[in-house]
């Protein structure tokens, strides 16, 4: 993920980064205002061919707004964007030929069947692979004969996912792709993303669920209130993410304030709650000494994981985000 602020330039189609990889998406200093509200405040984002990039942030952070600017649904207030080397505003039709998008809030024409909707997408795109369409339809378990108005959220999501994966697009953009899907189908989705990546397809995956991004993405960018607060490989970010610790003890919960990495400790009778980052050994030792009756160390949700990044500190906002360049 290159993040070179000295190069806001306009590369020609097929332009390559210094590493020799083709940049599929290049966003520099993207700003979007709604009236007096600044929804995006200087977003930089690069996605290379064959790369899966996670776009993380709580609801309202600006993930969808960024994607909708990139796809020319929204007109940015400032900054530059390149989609396959083209300005989405002027070259969007050509650029979108290579992009397939699954919106977060998906509405379908109510009286059409799933199959008819996929047919009309295929006609508009002209790059759909019938064999892949049949394969993905079957793996997601979508009944193409059902009318859209009778489809559940999960089934509508399947229609959108088939429409994306059946294309030969070079970039797949997903906005909260697995909401409404059961765990088995989420696994199918992850498999499909991996297969797409293996074909050289780039994927931009927006989500507020860390686990989803963690299991599929190579890199992730974390958004908060229209700014990027962290970026790096998923492992880097995971190392910085605080886990939730909850333990119950036979007697009054002990004071574990001395354990390195443990923060926000709250005790309530026999119960202790805290957040934890870093090397788990000292924590496990300390817990074991007090013979807890139960211990839960949970996968952090995004708000927990990046609370430090999210809490604005007026003195050092610029210094804190862990910058990791790929």
């Amino acid at each position: 993920m290159d993040d070179d602020p000295t190069d806001p330039g306009a590369p020609s189609p097929g332009d390559s980064s210094p590493g020799g990889r083709t940049a599929v998406v290049e966003i520099r200093g993207l700003v979007k205002d709604y009236g007096r509200v600044r929804a995006l405040n200087g977003i930089d984002l690069t996605v290379h061919a064959g790369e899966v990039v996670g776009f993380l942030g709580p609801n309202g952070a600006g993930k969808s707004t960024t994607i909708r600017c990139l796809l020319d649904l929204l007109r940015p207030t400032g900054g530059t964007m390149r989609l396959f080397g083209r300005d989405p505003r002027t070259g969007g039709v050509e650029a979108r030929r290579r992009v397939s998008y699954v919106p977060g809030e998906l509405r379908l024409p109510p009286r059409s069947t799933a199959g008819e909707i996929l047919d009309s997408v295929a006609r508009l795109r002209g790059d759909c692979d019938p064999a892949r369409r049949a394969d993905v339809t079957e793996r997601l378990g979508l009944d193409p004969h059902k009318a859209a108005k009778g489809l559940s959220t999960g089934n509508r999501r399947k229609v959108a996912l088939v429409s994306a994966f059946m294309s030969r697009a070079d970039l797949l953009v997903f906005d909260e792709p697995t909401s409404g899907l059961d765990p088995l189908l989420q696994q199918v989705f992850r498999d499909l993303v991996r297969e797409a990546k293996a074909r050289g397809t780039a994927v931009l995956l927006s989500s507020h669920v860390l686990a989803e991004v963690q299991r599929t993405a190579d890199h992730a960018v974390v958004l908060r209130q229209g700014r990027i607060v962290a970026r790096g490989t998923v492992d880097d970010l995971r190392g910085n993410a605080a886990q939730r610790v909850e333990a119950v003890f036979p007697g009054t919960a002990p004071d574990l304030g001395a354990v390195p990495g443990l923060a926000d400790i709250r005790t309530d009778g026999r119960r202790l709650r805290a957040r934890f980052t870093g090397d788990p050994a000292p924590l496990l030792d300390a817990l074991a000494r007090h013979r807890p009756t139960s211990v839960e160390i949970a996968e952090p949700d995004l708000d927990d994981a990046f609370r430090d990044l999210y809490t604005p500190h007026a003195d050092d906002t610029a210094a804190r985000p862990p910058e990791a360049h790929a």
Partner: peptide, 14 residues
């Protein structure tokens, strides 16, 4: 209003 434009306008159409 009902969001049907979203899928249509992100296709390769002006």
């Amino acid at each position: 209003e009902s969001g049907h434009y979203e899928l249509l306008l992100t296709q390769p159409v002006s």
